[in-house]
């Protein structure tokens, strides 16, 4: 059980850090989970503002051009953008 205890201590520390933050849950940038992204390019193919590019096998979002239309979130087959 020791290993699980260590993990949950780390998890609890992160949660405490989170709870210390105030304000609404609001993202200023979308996140790409690079572990889940397969670089298939589906997000690039549906995005109308030209701010997503697949670089070195991962989708990369340009935060200055993203309009939060969420098309890439809806289309990504791996659920890697959120």
């Amino acid at each position: 059980m020791t290993q699980y205890a260590k993990f949950f201590v780390i998890l609890a520390a992160v949660l405490i850090l989170l709870s210390a933050c105030k304000g609404p849950v609001e993202s200023t940038q979308l996140i790409v989970d690079t572990d889940a992204c397969t670089g298939c390019g589906e997000c690039v193919e549906v995005f109308p503002y030209g701010s997503i590019e697949v670089i070195d096998g991962d989708a990369v979002i340009d935060p200055s051009l993203c309009h939060f239309c969420y098309r890439c979130v809806e289309q990504c087959p791996e659920g890697a953008i959120y």
Partner: peptide, 18 residues
């Protein structure tokens, strides 16, 4: 487990938890 916190003009807010 992933946590993202934004620091936006003096406002600290949770941007994403997954």
């Amino acid at each position: 487990f992933e946590s993202v916190i934004d620091f936006d003009d003096g406002v600290t807010r949770s941007a994403c938890t997954s």
